[in-house]
């Protein structure tokens, strides 16, 4: 009995250590840096989505100044809340449909759902703008929707073709 009692503190210590090690993030994090190319390591590189969104907002072409407002994105897409790790948005305050959304999902499998939700969103936007501001509709014809790992990027800009190139560069995909 004494031996068992003496072992209990060690067992508790092992239990605590194992729990702590489960919480450690895996993979390398590169805060503040964007990916410039695929990593040669087998470990996936975690993107800083705030940096990704900021680069997209500054390097793509927009007719109005965009403002960072991630709370807007969370409210707009509540159905994705459970699967979303974090999200960043740059949006205008005028009438244009131009926007930048970047989602980091909890798993790669969740990115398919995001893409589906964004496609439905674009469809509704087209319908709304067709009635209200038809000159804006062409911007919604080929929005940029790209994924890299757990990250999903959405851009509607003045020049979506150019925006796609920027997005691929930022995400480090071909």
């Amino acid at each position: 009995m004494k031996k068992i009692s003496a072992l209990i503190p060690f067992l508790l210590l092992i239990l605590v250590l194992s729990l702590v090690s489960c919480g450690s993030p895996s993979g390398a994090t590169q805060p503040g840096a964007s990916q410039t190319g695929p990593s040669s390591d087998s470990e996936p590189v975690v993107l800083d989505i705030a940096a990704v969104a900021a680069r997209l907002a500054s390097e793509c072409s927009f007719s109005e100044e965009l403002t960072e407002n991630s709370a807007y994105l969370s409210a707009k897409f509540r159905s994705l809340a459970e699967q979303t790790e974090s999200c960043v948005a740059y949006v205008p305050t005028g009438i244009t449909p131009e926007e930048v959304f970047v989602f980091e999902m909890k798993s790669e499998e969740d990115t398919a759902q995001v893409k589906s939700v964004l496609e439905s969103y674009v469809s509704r936007q087209k319908s709304d703008y067709a009635d209200y501001a038809p000159l804006q509709v062409p911007k919604l014809e080929n929005p940029v929707i790209l994924t890299s790992g757990k990250v999903v990027v959405f851009v509607v800009s003045v020049d979506n073709e150019a925006a796609e190139s920027v997005a691929k560069s930022v995400l480090g995909i071909g």
Binding site: E68, N69, T93, I95, D128, Y132, A133
Partner: peptide, 18 residues
């Protein structure tokens, strides 16, 4: 919608263009 997107006010919004 513009007010909502500006983030100037933390409130609920049921707003849409048109």
């Amino acid at each position: 919608v513009g007010l909502e997107k500006s983030g100037e006010l933390q409130a609920g919004f049921s707003a849409n263009i048109g």
